[in-house]
Design a binder for these strands. Structure first.
Lengths: 248, 248
DNA sequence: AGACTTTTAAATGTCAGACAAATAAAATAT
DNA sequence: ATATTTTATTTGTCTGACATTTAAAAGTCT
């Protein structure tokens, strides 16, 4: 692990990259202890605060964890799905909220990925997954639900569908797509009528998953996609009209 | 933004979380300048090194960037797809390499997601995407290619297929799944015979995408999935047999 | 001998103060 | 008007110190 003191990059960034490379390429293995901060400072010929900044960069990516006290130190972390989930959700949310992505693009990606999970979910879902879906459908049918609650329930429903596939990698990938869409979905479920339609489609999806009927699940998902896009278009049109009225 | 000095968590972690929340929830917007390190230290009632550790955590997640000099400082970063890609790839690679995921699970996820892209790619692929796919097929047909080169080309081929869908969110999601699989794929393409079959299937996929035939592309992808799993099983069996011989 | 308590050493967490280096605005000189 | 120099601000880095945590080691009591 070498660093270049004359490089334009920060020393702490270079050190973090060097250690990261060691982890990714397997030179440092899970639960292995890194040298102490003082030793690292000595090895890289920098001060301890610089080493610490590098270690904090790695900790922020869940690549290491630190423990205080004698025989403490920095240890290579076995990255968990939970860690990966939350990173994924944060990144996806920011990508969408910073307007780098249109609603259409995000929506298309989300439903394309979800359709990929549906056949697997039809085959492998457990009674637990089904129970979650049914429970959320009941919740969504309650009158007077806030948009936030409705959409949170929507997310739970779809995550149960995805988790039903029994593939943690798919769950991890979809977590970002589904959760990040929630704020965007909030704005299109404000009428009782649109909620009714969504609940109806959710019921058809749950029925199909229960019957292990992949084709029916796919059909319902496609309809939900189409309906979501339609709703979004009408919301946009209504807003444009409102602006027109105000402007004129 | 408040922090609790008596909490068990590090001050720098708390500060990083507080600022992160401000960004995710929109109180800090893209390109907005954060207070200087000295001001932050004052606000949070901590020292500058502690503030710096917090900022480095955020920089590691591409949430902020820093600039030296007068009128420099820390600015909220507009997260780019490139940043998101590389984070995604690192996380996925680590998840797989740390053995949290079996080959079967990773493979299933990868091809399920890829099948989700294929119909979109058949509809929207540009001549550029097709040209990349064809070029990589030619490369893969060359004799004497190293496993690494063959698999790197494989990744490029599949990324062209995915990018053909013209949906950056899908490309971003798939980047992790496809790239992270590469090291695992390396071990199953060591015979000329298996490469021939893979190239044949790639050709069928490219043909289908060129003809905008989504169904044919899907069929070929399914066959590629099956074949990949078969190859992996035979590799595993061969290894087990080799161990048996050595052990007996 | 065994169980409990105290000591100790090592490591991270935090702080204070200083200087270096970069950078853009402001002031100055041409 | 342009080019150069100065200056103030801010991040990057270093040194040295102390606080806190922790587990092993040593000591003490039964």
């Amino acid at each position: 692990m070498k660093i270049d003191p004359n490089s334009s990059a920060d020393l702490s960034a270079q050190i973090a990259q060097a250690i990261k490379d060691s982890i990714v390429e397997g030179r440092l293995i899970v639960d292995e202890r890194l040298p102490s901060e003082a030793e690292l400072a000595d090895q890289f010929q920098v001060s301890r605060p610089t080493v610490r900044e590098a270690l904090k960069r790695l900790a922020a990516q869940s690549l290491i964890r630190t423990q205080r006290g004698a025989f403490g130190g920095a240890f290579v972390n076995r990255i968990s799905f939970e860690d990966a989930y939350s990173q994924q959700i944060t990144t996806s949310t920011l990508l969408l909220s910073m307007n780098a992505v249109s609603f259409d693009t995000a929506c298309e990606a989300r439903f394309a990925l979800e359709r990929a999970c549906a056949p697997l979910s039809a085959r492998r879902r457990t009674p637990d997954h089904l129970a979650t879906m049914r429970a959320e459908i009941v919740r969504q049918s309650q009158p007077g639900l806030s948009d936030e609650t409705f959409c949170a329930s929507d997310v739970t429903f779809h995550r149960a569908l995805v988790d039903g596939a029994g593939n943690p990698v798919l769950s991890y990938q979809l977590a970002g797509a589904v959760e990040a869409m929630q704020p965007l979905m909030n704005m299109i479920t404000f009428t009782a009528r649109s909620r009714e339609v969504i609940v109806g489609l959710h019921t058809r999806i749950a029925d199909a998953i229960e019957a292990r009927d992949a084709a029916a699940a796919d059909t319902a998902l496609v309809e939900l996609t189409t309906y979501t896009m339609t709703l979004k278009d009408s919301v946009m049109a209504a807003r444009a009209a409102a602006r027109e009225t105000l402007g004129g």
